[in-house]
Nucleic acid binder design. Structure first.
Lengths: 258, 258
DNA sequence: TAGTGGTCTAGACCACCTT
DNA sequence: AGGTGGTCTAGACCACTAG
């Protein structure tokens, strides 16, 4: 006990693993462990789909007990950053279809079911960021963005008109892509190494503008649900601003509270 | 201490505590502990504001280790059913102003701040439940409900028109109340012993009806945000159906995803 | 000072999955 | 069979709060 708890002060294994643990007094050990694992995710040392070392291996490497590692991992599982599979290991979360739908697509049909929409891109341009875009995406003056405009269909009917804004420096060469996949967050991850960790949404009711009304096959001034979302990475950098205007005649935006 | 921890295996104290633990194989112990605590909350054996016995006392009573009790309590803290205060104890959650605002009122002003609205009741009647009310509140045919109609103001401006439906058998004598408090869920708890544990919301954009437009000082057909919420108790019984129609010109409904 | 929750450890055993 | 996460225990020590 005595020899183990005061840690190998003289024998530090010199591995190439980027962030190491330095015990800070006053901060819980499990929080420090969590921070290290989080850093390794940010640095892409562990990528989505990767399996982490076992709890015992991590514990040994960081000179803490397995229970401490366990607590840190559990907190990150609760944040949807990691996934555990009993008998297999702990994995970095991926953007599976199910996950994308469940976490980031919150429109449900009246009859309860939900499906991934089909999208048709109307425009894709690269230009200087507007004032509001700079504010939302925390960009410097003069920064450029990629702006997308698209219509999304559910059950063959156009339901959503969407405008996306991405910082160009984070998505080099995106404008050239002809066909974008339906699951954009997986695409961001796979092609640009950008992992969306969470998003803040503001929802309002607005009146359909003429173009929107035409695209959705409704009357101008008809009420639309506007979902204004900024998606951020695990370290809090905003990477996408998305404004979706939805015809909620047959659909509803769902949320759980409490 | 020694006499406490090794638990009275032969001496079972015959207390009047309702639900006791019976070890079921195949089910985690902590889940069984959680179930028991949950039952005691449902039975109002422990009421909002009450302090639970210490982790060690609970562990001794149920003949499990403190760590097992701890895990059960932590899960219920994550559900907002319990609150822990270091050095003091574990308490059954109450409907504080802060809690009501944070968990169940999700409109924020453009400038970011939020405040409890002021309500003016327009009508309060008792009648037979409609078809949709019976469906939402899982009522038997012929059941009666109390229906409320009110306008809610923020910063002195009418912003929300709200219709509430409550099963009459759960709220005896409510119709007679002249003045309802702003924090309804605390009122339900204090006066009727009904504790709202969570709520499911569906959000849509709708066009203002003439009466709504008049009450909110906007044009008829103007877009309104409709929040359709069913509130349920800890054991899943629906106790309130609330449809709020909000003028989101200056306000937004906020949500976090991921 | 005494009691509470919060952290950390160490070790045992189980359930599950792969090979 | 061997490795992984999942559960459970037991005990030590710390941090906070009350009286």
């Amino acid at each position: 006990m005595a020899g183990k708890t005061d840690a190998p002060k003289g024998r530090k294994p010199r591995r190439a693993k980027p962030p190491r643990l330095k015990r800070q007094p006053g901060k819980p050990l499990y929080a420090q462990v969590e921070e290290i694992i989080r850093k390794r995710l940010i640095d892409n040392y562990w990528k989505p789909g990767d399996m982490l070392p076992s709890e015992f291996d991590l514990a040994a490497e960081l000179s803490v007990s397995q229970g401490t590692v366990r607590k840190a991992l559990n907190e990150m599982v609760a944040e949807n950053l990691l996934e555990r599979r009993q008998g297999l290991g702990t994995f970095v979360s991926e953007y599976t279809e199910r996950r994308a739908l469940f976490l980031y697509f919150n429109l449900r049909h009246r009859d309860g079911d939900q499906a991934m929409p089909m999208s048709r891109t109307l425009a894709c341009e690269s230009r200087k960021a507007s004032e509001s875009e700079r504010a939302r995406l925390q960009l410097d003056p003069g920064a450029r963005v990629i702006a997308l405009h698209r219509v999304r269909e559910l059950r063959g009917q156009p339901v959503i008109v969407e405008r996306l804004t991405l910082p160009q420096n984070l998505f080099p060469g995106l404008g050239a892509v002809t066909k974008l996949p339906e699951n954009l967050y997986r695409f961001y991850q796979g092609e640009f190494g950008i992992t969306v960790a969470k998003a803040a949404e503001e929802v309002r009711a607005v009146a359909a503008e003429p173009l929107e009304a035409q695209l959705l096959g409704i009357m101008p001034e008809a009420p639309l649900l506007e979902i204004d979302r900024v998606a951020v990475t695990i370290d809090g950098r905003p990477v996408e601003w998305r404004v979706s205007r939805c015809n909620t005649t047959d659909y509803a935006y769902v949320a759980e509270r409490g």
